[in-house]
């Protein structure tokens, strides 16, 4: 029989063929998705490095109040972002306590850096370095950089906490008057938050004890001693908010909350040291403790140094205001620094 090989289609063949073609096109259009996924991990290293640079240089981190660097090992899971900036209104100004905490590899492990600073689904390798131009800060974390990597460099300035130095030049102001017969000697350093939390001062220069440590250093103590006494006994350091006293249940091991040093001794003292002071006292009060004092923008925090000797061995008295007066408080200059982030 003569086969007729004309290429004519029948209708039901067309229908079947159409369904087949539609299915084939749908499958073919999914193929690029398979191939694109394999090649995208190398493209966004620079973008991830840029994002990490922004988080470190322009973001104060989260939580902000109390600040994340005040959290101890038990609560490190609550830290969501480790930003180094002083506040979100002062980009590129970093706080030195945040820097010290961020580069503390005994507190953060590589998984923490990935989840709190770098983010992303892929396990990136990283190298984050910070160096101040005068060399005082020189920190690095992460592995050695390979040949090709994503990179960003930021120029920043580092803010260090303020210090109130009460030295011999204050002798006349803080000495008890000769006709005063009282036997207790109390020296108060007053934090008046009405003066301190002044929003017209840029956050790069502002003193906020709730977010950064404050340092009270009394030197030349021999000038404040009474007559022939060689030392005066520091009975206790107490804290008051307005008229009510604040409980301070920490001891010398709680270095995250405060440190108290007396007379250049390397040991740390509890808040009730009961030891003699002959040359200097240095108290650093950290935000981990201050944030628990429930202080607001109108509070007044008094730090009292109570000396008790019978008869009194020191003549120190008075109230020293921790404010923006440069003779009362020294605010260190901002230090320029370079921050580099490498991601691969």
């Amino acid at each position: 029989m003569l086969r007729n090989d004309e290429g004519l289609f029948s209708i039901d063949f067309l229908v079947g063929f159409t369904i087949f073609m539609v299915a084939l096109i749908a499958v073919a259009s999914m193929v690029p998705g398979l191939l694109a996924g394999l090649q995208s991990s190398g493209i966004d290293y620079d973008a991830v490095a840029y994002r990490t640079g922004v988080i470190l240089a322009e973001d104060p981190g989260w939580p902000v109040d109390p600040p994340w660097e005040a959290y101890d090992v038990n609560h490190s899971g609550e830290i969501e972002r480790t930003g180094l900036a002083v506040s979100k209104d002062a980009p590129n100004i970093l706080l030195s306590t945040k820097i010290e905490k961020f580069f503390d590899t005994s507190f953060f492990d590589p998984e923490d850096y990935r989840s709190k600073a770098i983010f992303g689904d892929i396990t990136y390798s990283y190298n984050i370095t910070l160096r101040s131009l005068d060399g005082r800060y020189n920190h690095a974390v992460g592995q050695e950089t390979p040949e090709g990597y994503g990179y960003i460099r930021r120029v920043v300035k580092i803010k260090e906490p303020s210090v109130a130095v009460i030295n011999g030049s204050f002798k006349d102001r803080y000495t008890i008057s000769p006709d005063d017969n009282s036997t207790t000697r109390t020296f108060i350093v007053r934090f008046d938050f009405n003066r301190l939390i002044n929003l017209s001062i840029d956050p790069a220069y502002r003193i906020d004890p709730r977010t950064e440590p404050v340092n009270i250093t009394i030197t030349d103590f021999e000038k404040f001693l009474n007559g022939t006494a060689s030392e005066a006994t520091l009975k206790s350091v107490t804290f008051r908010r307005g008229s009510s006293s604040i409980p301070f249940p920490y001891d010398e091991d709680d270095t995250d909350y405060y440190t108290l040093r007396i007379d250049n001794n390397p040991v740390l003292y509890p808040p009730e040291p009961g030891v003699g002071v002959s040359s200097n006292i240095s108290l650093v009060l950290k935000p981990a403790a201050t944030s628990l004092f429930e202080l607001g923008p109108t509070s007044i925090l008094d730090v009292e140094f109570n000396f008790e000797d019978k008869p009194p061995d020191t003549n120190i008295t008075g109230i020293h205001y921790y404010d923006y007066n440069p003779t009362n408080v020294t605010r260190p200059d901002l230090k320029p620094a370079v921050l580099e982030v490498a991601i691969w």
Binding site: G7, I25, V31
Partner: peptide
């Protein structure tokens, strides 16, 4: 006979090829 139909089929296939490449790049 039927060359036209096969030729049209080839044209359609090439057209589909071109469209698939566009969809690929659009990702």
């Amino acid at each position: 006979d039927g060359q036209w139909i096969v030729l049209m089929g080839l044209l359609v296939a090439v057209g589909l090829f071109f469209l698939a490449l566009i969809i690929n790049q659009s990702a």
